[in-house]
Simulated scan of single mutants.
Amino acid sequence: MLSISKVLQFAGLDISKNIKIARHMDTRGVDVHELYATGHFELYQSYQEKNHFRDCDYLVSCLGIENNQAIFIGVYEVRAINKVNGFPDYLDVPYKGKAKTYSRYKYELKKLSGFEELENRLLIKWESRAQSWCMKFETSEKEIIQLLPKGYVRDFPGYLEINLSFRELQKVIVDPNANNIWHKMLSSVGGVYLIVDTEDGLQYVGSAVGKEGILGRWKEYANNGHGGNKKLREIIELNPERVQNFRFSILQTLPRTLTRNEALIEESKYKHKLGTRAYGLNLN
């Protein structure tokens, strides 16, 4: 068995130090993967309700994913522990009011260099959900399941299980080698797709057919966020950061060989069902 402790030791981690390993996976409506992608994770990690990182020189941090697995994101030096009385009100963060509200400890953490080639690539087995999310590193012996390719986003879940953030969509599109299954599957079908603006819940229904199928259409969204749609363009022009709230999913797959008019008939059915003309982002 190849364990994460052996791999990180080979990469330069001094395992004679007091080390803990943590699998972050919040159940309070907070997406830790989104926090990590948007640069909010390190502050989130530094506040804790219990003194989880006490007697700890280094912290091996991971993000939880499905099937009791985790993805390694870095090693942090624990420089100091400070007692606090809750999370600062003046900080405007995505998890405000959901998590960290009753924090009692604030840790000064510094990310160590030298592990960049392994970050977002080491896939680790975490035994079971009942196992503690934070534990001593030397006793955990977490097994490495896979070293993922650079630029890999996630496994292709099946067409009707897709729910990509805009940032994830961009990563899938720009790195076809690491995400070749996504490119193969999305280019093999047409379909009716849904874009949801998670800030206000408004929805846009569109469709795609032709040579590259859904992939070809979604490449346009990955490029500019709006894909030429008037209402989406207006939203982004008013606030360019708003595009980060968009999520992409597929409502129905269609043969790529359908005519554009045939695809529009299927698209119209979903616009009617979801009310996206009257209450959403579709203008026709």
Results as ranks from 00 to 15, higher is better:
196 V>K: 07
127 E>D: 13
261 N>Y: 12
84 V>Q: 11
135 M>D: 06
177 N>Y: 02
250 I>W: 01
145 I>G: 02
30 V>M: 06
89 D>Q: 15
246 F>P: 01
195 I>A: 09
257 T>G: 07
166 F>V: 03
18 N>Q: 12
51 N>W: 15
44 Y>V: 01
190 G>E: 07
104 R>D: 10
118 L>C: 06
155 D>W: 13
112 L>F: 00
25 M>F: 15
83 K>T: 12
199 E>Q: 07
187 S>T: 08
159 Y>T: 00
280 G>A: 07
6 K>C: 07
110 K>S: 10
215 L>F: 13
198 T>P: 03
139 T>A: 12
32 V>W: 01
216 G>C: 10
208 A>P: 01
128 S>H: 15
14 D>C: 09
74 G>S: 00
202 L>R: 09
276 T>A: 06
44 Y>A: 08
53 F>N: 02
94 P>H: 12
168 E>T: 00
46 S>N: 07
125 K>T: 00
9 Q>Y: 09
129 R>H: 15
46 S>D: 03
204 Y>I: 01
105 Y>T: 05
87 F>D: 10
173 I>G: 07
48 Q>M: 10
234 E>M: 03
2 L>R: 15
95 Y>M: 13
131 Q>V: 00
221 Y>H: 13
275 G>H: 12
58 Y>P: 01
132 S>R: 15
62 C>Q: 07
68 N>D: 10
80 A>Y: 10
265 I>D: 01
53 F>S: 03
101 T>A: 05
79 R>A: 03
38 T>S: 13
189 V>W: 11
240 P>W: 15
135 M>S: 11
226 H>I: 01
114 G>K: 08
80 A>Q: 15
207 S>R: 04
54 R>S: 07
103 S>H: 09
138 E>W: 00
141 E>V: 05
277 R>E: 14
200 D>A: 02
191 G>Y: 05
229 N>F: 05
42 E>R: 14
6 K>G: 04
194 L>Y: 03
137 F>N: 07
134 C>M: 11
103 S>E: 08
37 A>Q: 10
176 P>K: 02
113 S>F: 06
47 Y>I: 08
281 L>N: 03
2 L>S: 10
223 N>P: 02
183 H>Y: 11
160 L>M: 12
